[in-house]
Design a protein around this nucleic acid. Sequence first.
DNA 1: TAGGGTCACAACCGATGGTTGTGGGTTGGT
DNA 2: ACCAACCCACAACCATCGGTTGTGACCCTA
Lengths: 315, 315
Amino acid sequence: MDIGLDLDTVRTFVAAADAGRFQEAAAELTVTQQAVSKRIAVLERKLGVRLFTRTARGAELTIDGQAFLPHARELLRVAERAVASVRTGRRPLRVDVLTSRSAASGLMRGFHRTHPDIELDVMTLFDIETAVAAIRSGAIDASFRAVAVPGRPLPEDIASLRVLDESLELLTGPAHALAGARSVPVARLAGHRIWMPGIVPGTEWAAYYDDLVAEFGLTIEATGPNFGSDALLDTIADTPALATFMGGQTRLIWPAGHGLRRIPVTDPTPVYPHSLLWHRDNPHPALATLRAHLAATTPGHDVPGTWTPDWVLPH
Amino acid sequence: MDIGLDLDTVRTFVAAADAGRFQEAAAELTVTQQAVSKRIAVLERKLGVRLFTRTARGAELTIDGQAFLPHARELLRVAERAVASVRTGRRPLRVDVLTSRSAASGLMRGFHRTHPDIELDVMTLFDIETAVAAIRSGAIDASFRAVAVPGRPLPEDIASLRVLDESLELLTGPAHALAGARSVPVARLAGHRIWMPGIVPGTEWAAYYDDLVAEFGLTIEATGPNFGSDALLDTIADTPALATFMGGQTRLIWPAGHGLRRIPVTDPTPVYPHSLLWHRDNPHPALATLRAHLAATTPGHDVPGTWTPDWVLPH
DNA sequence: TAGGGTCACAACCGATGGTTGTGGGTTGGT
DNA sequence: ACCAACCCACAACCATCGGTTGTGACCCTA
């Protein structure tokens, strides 16, 4: 179905369209006029359309050529950005956001809205260990994580800023015993089955839920393979005895007709602390902009009536 | 400076990233595993970065690979649309808009806002002759034009709909005699030098200004080569004795500090009539949508106090 | 430790895409 | 009306590229 376009050919097409003459385009690309002629001919054969009308004083775009031209330019733009994304030196700011639907991802969307000119590459690493390693190696510029896991303090060269406390909510199906509640105290969750597949021991999120369990006497089951959030939501919706935790700012693809309920948890409200981590010596100019943006836009923390593990860094 | 990426390689990269194993990607692309390995190796050498970490049970993306992946996907999307833009059959709706800054272009932007799902290719043809020929040949689907030049009625198979009457405004520099006026009656323009380079005899816009000149005794100079709107604006701004006409909805790149004035023309206000033209038998589904959109959103015409040539089609 | 899975390297070879040389065709000056 | 000066296309040639097959090193698991 797809044609093996190659970008040199596309570049040739754009150069020829701009120049209006194959010769000039050839000079610009430092190839011969015959090479340009051949490339264009091949492109036309691949597309099945005539792109230029050859005249005695050059080559003019056909209507098909005019239609193709802006797409060709866009293609070159995107290619340039793709290459730039892995260029060492001035590359887009690389930020790790835990998951694509997390609150950190929302913060980055906000940052992108107010700074649309700053190029970003958003990615999702496994845990804080790999994130810190990636930051120290320079592979990424910043990471949103809960810091720090007990017994594993942040290295000296890593700086952090507490940027968002995200309230946890209980997610249940319509037949769950708590489905009708407008909110639920943490203590009332004792004895209920809370299912969170995909928790990997040793990660900072596992440490968070371990502490939560210990503090309030909950039971969280992490059994079974993690088939992704869709499967999780399906199961929660269909199983009256099962609930799960979810960040209050998580963006869900809400399955229609499932009747899922998001129920705030209170007394106290467990909050998941997101901090921004970065390397003290990272000179990326956009990093300072991001820090300033987050410092300016994020609300206060440690609101009374909330809970976080005591190993969480202050701000 | 740019690297000769080719899209087959990019496709291979995406397939390998999705599959997690070169073998599976190879099967999907119906090439051998060795070919995939080679392609990835070449891509990594070109980019100067390692994209995968090879393990015993497959290949995992490095951080650089993760950063590159969304750009690679975007590249393939754009490529697909580029190819689709010249595919006969279901291709984007092709609309000719006179110039990229014309009122018709604004109408298309509005259409795109309310129907972002409909793919469009907007282009600018020379005059109504070529537009009609392109419509009849199927090369384009619709055109915004003033119809019809006297003596050249629309062919039977071309339908039209009057969609917008655009008031003409006078554009002057700050030192022009009329620069201070809030509006100016057409009759007061007699004797003033109005300069509109780029008018080509025989086109429908030339016919429009010919009629305007004849009706109100104006003098329009079309002399001199047309160096584009930037050069025109520069000259108008610097020359007290010169003014030009401009569509009231034209989007200008307003040069800073030029002090240009746009002055409405009255008694009557000359309006430039934009009609949508299309082929009666054109089955493109988006064409009907566009017609309905325009019929619903465009205001009435032939407002009292306005003027159009008498050869303009009624609606 | 044997076996089945992964990817990489080497040798080979046809297709691709560049070069030079040449020819047809329109334009414009003499 | 011709000829020079431009255009682009076609042909022949040839190096490189990108695929194939064959093989080997490696890792995990039974």
